[in-house]
C-alpha cells in the first residue's frame, strides 16, 4: 500500500527527514512513535503534500503510484487521508457543504456517482450518530468554535465519510479525554479491513491500547531507529525514548 524509500525532506532549508524507509502493507495498522521534534508531523505533511515541506530525495509509492508526483487533492482522491493535529478553522464554509464537496470530488475520481444533498445528509447523519456527534456539527462552519475534542471528532467523521485506503492520524490523541479517545479509536477500528491501512502517529502508548498496531516504528532525529511489534510501544512507555534516540545519534 505505502512504500517509502530513502525519503529526505527539508523545512525552511533545514533537513528534518534524513532518509525514511517504511512499508505499510494493505490491511495493516502501523504506529510511528517518537519524541517531540523527531520529524513525525513532518512525515505526515510530506505524505499529504503540504507546501513548504520540500522533498529532497527518495520516493514514495502509494498503491503502485508515485505519491510525490500528485497534488494534495489527487492524493486524497487516491485514498490518502490525513487527520490533522491542528485542524484549521474555515469561517463561512459550512461543514456539510464542505464534506459533500470533498466526498463528491473523491467519488468522481473513483469513478463513482456523486451524491445529491439528500443522499449525502442521510449518510452524514448516520456517521455522525455512530460517532456520537451532535447533528448540529454538520450545520456549523468547519471547525469554527469547535473545542479541541470536537475538532478531532470532526476529523474522524470526515475520515468515516471519505473512507480512505490509508488514514494517517497525526497525534490525533493529543489533548483528548478518554471518551473522545475511544471515539477516535472506534473510528479507526471501524475502518480496518483487508484493503485499508492506517499510520498512527503518536507520542504516547495510550492510543495504542485502543488501536492495536501490527507494527510499531520509532522515529528519532529524522530516521526510523527501531521497528517491532505492538510490544515495542509498551517497552517505550516503560523505558522512554532516550536509549533509542542515542542509537541514532
Amino acid at each position: 500500500m505505502l512504500e517509502i524509500r530513502g525519503l529526505t525532506a527539508t523545512v525552511d532549508g533545514r533537513e528534518i527527514l534524513h532518509g525514511i524507509d517504511l512499508d505499510v502493507p494493505a490491511g495493516e495498522v502501523h504506529a510511528i512513535m517518537g519524541p517531540n521534534g523527531s520529524g513525525k508531523s513532518t512525515l505526515a505533511h510530506v505524505l499529504a503534500g503540504r507546501d513548504g515541506y520540500e522533498v529532497t530525495g527518495g520516493r514514495v509509492g502509494f498503491g503502485g503510484r508515485d505519491l510525490l508526483a500528485l497534488a494534495p487533492e489527487e492524493r486524497a482522491a487516491a485514498g490518502l487521508f490525513l487527520a490533522f493535529q491542528y485542524p484549521v478553522e474555515l469561517p463561512g464554509v459550512g461543514n456539510a457543504n464542505f464534506l459533500r464537496t470533498a466526498l463528491n470530488a473523491v467519488r468522481r475520481a473513483r469513478g463513482e456517482s456523486e451524491l445529491d444533498a439528500v443522499q449525502f445528509l442521510k449518510l452524514a447523519r448516520a456517521e455522525a450518530k455512530r460517532l456520537s456527534m451532535p447533528e448540529d456539527m454538520l450545520k456549523r462552519n468547519v471547525n469554527v468554535g469547535f473545542s479541541g475534542g470536537e475538532k478531532k471528532r470532526n476529523e474522524v467523521l470526515q475520515m468515516a465519510i471519505l473512507r480512505p485506503r490509508l488514514a494517517i492520524l497525526d497525534e490525533t490523541d493529543s489533548g483528548l479525554d478518554i471518551d473522545a479517545l475511544r471515539i477516535v479509536a472506534d473510528g479507526v477500528n471501524a475502518l480496518r479491513g483487508p484493503q485499508t491501512s492506517a499510520l498512527v502517529i503518536t507520542h504516547y502508548q495510550r492510543l495504542l491500547d485502543h488501536i492495536v498496531p501490527d507494527r510499531v516504528h520509532v522515529l528519532a532525529h529524522g530516521r526510523i531507529v527501531r521497528s517491532g511489534g505492538a510490544e515495542l510501544a509498551r517497552q517505550l512507555e516503560l523505558e522512554g525514548y532516550a536509549g533509542m534516540a542515542a542509537d541514532a545519534a
Binding site: 499529504a48 503534500g49 503540504r50 507546501d51 497534488a71 494534495p72 487533492e73 492524493r75 486524497a76 482522491a77 487521508f81 490525513l82 490533522f84 485542524p87 484549521v88 474555515l90 464542505f98 464537496t101 470533498a102 466526498l103 470530488a105 473523491v106 475520481a109 470526515q158 471519505l162
Partner: peptide, 10 residues
C-alpha cells in the same frame, strides 16, 4: 491545503 487534502481541487 486542508480543503485540498480532503480531495477538493485547487
Amino acid at each position: 491545503f486542508y480543503l485540498r487534502s480532503r480531495g477538493i481541487a485547487a
